[in-house]
Amino acid sequence: MDDVPEPRWLVAANVVRWRRYGELGQEFRPGTKAFRGGAKVYVVETYPGMGNEQLTAVGHGRHTGRWITIDTGTRHLHTFRPRLVYSPAVLKRCAATPVRTREEAAELAERLDRTARLGRHTHHAAPHPDPCLCHACLPLSPG
C-alpha cells in the first residue's frame, strides 16, 4: 500500500484573470501561458529574480488539466494565503522543500502579496489603457 504523505502548510494563490503584456503593457491576455485566469495554485518555492521575485507553483495546467509545476513571476498571482494541503499530487511535488508552520506560511503569504502588488504596479512603466482589465484595475480587486 502507498503511504499517504503528511499534510503540509503551503501558500495558496490565484492566477490573475487578465495580465498586461506587449509594448508598454497596453494589451491583455487571460491568465498565464500555463494556468487559466483564476486558477488556484500552491507555492512550492520562492527565489529572487531579475527585479521581481519568482516562484515555483503547482496547479492544474491550462491545456491538460493535469497537475504541473511551473516557475512564474509573483506578479501573475494574487490573494496569497496559508493553506493546509492534503492533496498527494501537490505533496509529492513539494517533498524536497522545507516544512513550514502555519505562522511561517502566513508570513510568506504576506510578503508574496506585497511583492506581487509592487511587481504588477512597476513592471510596465506606462499608464494603464482605458478601459483596463488588469488585476489592480478590476472593480473587485484588492490593490
Rank of each mutant, 00 (worst) to 15 (best):
H124K: 02
E103C: 08
M50G: 12
E27M: 10
H135Q: 15
A13I: 05
L112W: 00
A95T: 11
T79E: 15
A39Q: 07
A12H: 05
L55N: 08
H60R: 14
R8V: 08
F28N: 00
T72K: 10
R114P: 00
P82G: 02
L55V: 05
C94R: 01
A126N: 14
K33T: 14
V11T: 06
E27P: 04
V90A: 00
H63C: 11
R83W: 10
I68V: 14
G143E: 06
P131H: 04
H121Q: 14
I70E: 13
A39N: 08
T69N: 12
Y21I: 06
E103F: 15
V16C: 01
P129Q: 04
D3Y: 14
Q26H: 15
Y86M: 07
I68T: 12
G49C: 05
G38I: 12
Y86A: 08
L118E: 13
A136D: 04
S87N: 12
A125R: 11
G61M: 07
R120F: 06
A126I: 13
L91W: 07
G61A: 09
S141N: 12
S87I: 08
W9Y: 07
C94Q: 01
P142G: 12
P131S: 05
C134K: 12
H76G: 05
L24Y: 14
D113S: 03
P30L: 09
G49T: 00
V11Y: 02
P48W: 00
R29Y: 14
I68W: 01
H76I: 03
D3K: 11
E53Q: 10
R117A: 06
L140I: 14
R93F: 01
V15W: 02
Y42S: 04
T74N: 06
G61N: 09
D71E: 08
P48I: 03
G73F: 02
G73T: 03
P129M: 02
R62D: 13
A96V: 11
T32D: 03
G143M: 09
A96T: 13
D113P: 01
P127K: 09
A136T: 05
R83M: 11
L140D: 15
C137T: 04
R117H: 06
T115R: 07
D130A: 10
I68M: 09
T69S: 15
A125G: 01
A96E: 12
K40V: 07
M1V: 12
W67M: 05
E23D: 12
R20V: 00
L77Q: 00
H121L: 12
V43L: 12
R19S: 03
P127V: 06
A39G: 08
L91R: 00
E45S: 07
R75I: 10
T64H: 11
A89N: 10
L55D: 05
V4T: 14
R81D: 02
G49E: 04
E104D: 00
D3H: 13
F80D: 00
E27N: 11
G31W: 15
P7M: 02
T69Q: 14
A126C: 13
P30N: 09
G65E: 07
E6K: 11
D71S: 08
A109H: 04
M1R: 03
T74G: 00
H135L: 10
A57N: 07
P127I: 03
A136H: 08
P131W: 10
H60G: 06
F35R: 04
E110F: 09
L140E: 14
R102E: 12
E107K: 14
H63P: 06
F28A: 01
L10P: 06
Y47D: 11
L91K: 01
